[in-house]
Design a protein around this nucleic acid. Structure first.
Lengths: 106, 106
DNA sequence: GTAGAATGTTCTACATTGTAGAAACTTTTC
DNA sequence: GAAAAGTTTCTACAATGTAGAACATTCTAC
């Protein structure tokens, strides 16, 4: 149940971007969605490199409409599991921490 | 308000580990806390390498009790800010996503 | 007080992930 | 059918993740 090798932060973001854009999840669109939601610039190269790596790991699939230019992606079950695990672990680490009530140095 | 360069996942974990262990936040202890909470093995080298990088970025400080062996760490204000930002962005990306109700391929 | 065990830190080396941007390819528009 | 717009691929490098052995310090028992 606990597949090893944690997701990197950008990997997680990209997967979430794919899920968020649903049917329309091709590279450029994922990029746009990520920029929209995070408010940060995302280079297109970064998106594809990450998508390719996720696909190589079997967390994501891609297909291209016959004779089409766009390559659309979808998150596969193992990807979902990874996302869930990643989140659960983080949840536990954050539990009980309230940054606002914390003594700070400098 | 939005300092650039996102935190890596292990960087975030280590900072949370430092916060969690409070006064007792020296390397070995942070490691133990991380293993306890995440349920995964963490190599001590990884912890220190990360701690050193975080210190180099000014997100964390360390000091050693005079003539003591242990080096204890604490998260500094910029580190807190980073943690908060990292979390906020992720929150936005996850908002509205429910992994349980999602069509999956394979 | 000293040898050995236990605890803790540093160092080195390499694997994986993050990132940018130009090149190449497709589709659309005129 | 050529230029423009949109999309993907490729290449190269930077930053982060990771392991483990070497080294230093403290503790314990004698």
């Amino acid at each position: 149940m606990t597949s090893d090798a944690p997701l990197g932060v950008f990997e997680e973001q990209v997967m979430l971007g794919v899920i968020r854009t649903g049917d329309e999840a091709y590279g450029m669109n994922v990029r746009r969605e990520l920029e929209r939601v995070t408010g940060r610039e995302v280079s297109i190269g970064a998106v594809y490199a990450t998508l390719d790596r996720l696909e190589a790991k079997g967390l994501v699939t891609s297909r291209r409409a016959p004779g089409g230019a766009r390559r659309t992606f979808a998150v596969m079950r193992p990807g979902m599991v990874m996302l869930a695990e990643t989140r659960a672990i983080r949840e536990r680490l954050w539990r009980g921490i309230d940054l606002a009530r914390l003594p700070v140095l400098a």
